[in-house]
Write a protein that binds this DNA or RNA. Sequence first.
DNA 1: CAATAATGGAGAGTAGTACTATCTAAGTCA
DNA 2: TGACTTAGATAGTACTACTCTCCATTATTG
Lengths: 212, 212
Amino acid sequence: MRISQLAAATGVPVATIKYYRREKLLHDGVLTAATQAHYDDSHVRRLKLIRALIGTAGLSVAATRELLQGLENPPEPGHDLLGLAHRAVTRPAADGVDLAPAQELLGRWGWGEQACDRNSQAALVEALDGLSSAGFELPDGMLDRYARAMRDVAEADVESVPTDSPEAAMRYVVLGTVLVEPVLLAMRRLAQQSASFERFGAATLGQGAGPV
Amino acid sequence: MRISQLAAATGVPVATIKYYRREKLLHDGVLTAATQAHYDDSHVRRLKLIRALIGTAGLSVAATRELLQGLENPPEPGHDLLGLAHRAVTRPAADGVDLAPAQELLGRWGWGEQACDRNSQAALVEALDGLSSAGFELPDGMLDRYARAMRDVAEADVESVPTDSPEAAMRYVVLGTVLVEPVLLAMRRLAQQSASFERFGAATLGQGAGPV
DNA sequence: CAATAATGGAGAGTAGTACTATCTAAGTCA
DNA sequence: TGACTTAGATAGTACTACTCTCCATTATTG
């Protein structure tokens, strides 16, 4: 398969394929001559994965590269699979973040603090800071309801990890983490619309009377 | 309060404040002379809100402007509050998207299809497409578990909407939708780490033995 | 009251990201 | 043979979110 056929098979422009190759997202084809290379199914699959990570999951090219490079190396026992996935979607925590608020919540929910890494805790703290600095106050108990729901999600995630091979587990964890996020957010919005429709009828929160 | 004091009070550089003003995110101060204007608390609050929307929620300047302009106009009865918030975080659906897969799911979950707008349905379809085109298959029943959890979240959201004043309701819906998303995602990651720690111990999915 | 600093408003400049286009020498195919 | 394709390198583009510079005022301070 030559590059133009690879482009046709995936819908990705040739120039973009070359760009991804330069950026080390896509492995080289097999050179058959100085100006000719062959690509195969592995390139098609990889390219589709790249587009899903950049397009659907909204990762940057740099984060995508890191995640793919992590996926490439077979996971050693004790390798931090979740960390690999989470680093791809979590920006590193600033140094001066006070993790105490997160620690308190983790304690309250019985989520072992020692199991949870700094960056994810910092992400929670920053998200909550964003809420409060915007002058937005969550009603009492709201955070706990959210926590229960996300715990359900996470338990489903963890239970479904295939345990037969480390490679399959790694793939599942890494892709499941980043690619499922947009699914969950889309679901929340639809569920909000449905719940609001049931509770208030169309007139209050849902679709207005007129066209959008 | 002059612009430099506004900058000091919010941590936003003067040049950036001027930029937000040009971009109509921030209302003008009161001119007291040709080169002097006064700012007040409303500017401080607005600026903090802008930073939360752009920084924490990850909105673009354009989406932030739209959302703020929507917040500004008092909501008319029948106004589409959820739509306003959802448009700020959902990119408009491409024309050619087939909504059938989403419709089927909505039917299965009993989420009234007529309550759910095209763009949100398209977002779900695209997110699921991303999963499958990445070669990632969700186990049977997984989507339903996710749906149940997100339904819980959405019901909490809708129940907590203050019903006393339309302005408060609008503010709650719009900000709650976009600012809570990062909170939920951070929680999912922490819950995954905790659940994985409980199920597998530190060695399999969680923090590796060595330093990262 | 004069020197210094700050401000509003406008425009231009910058840094980063994700491509996209052009070019050359080399190879392929009809 | 001659049009077409390709690898690899370099340069250019479009967009976003700022950031800087400038000038004619105002304000502040010694």
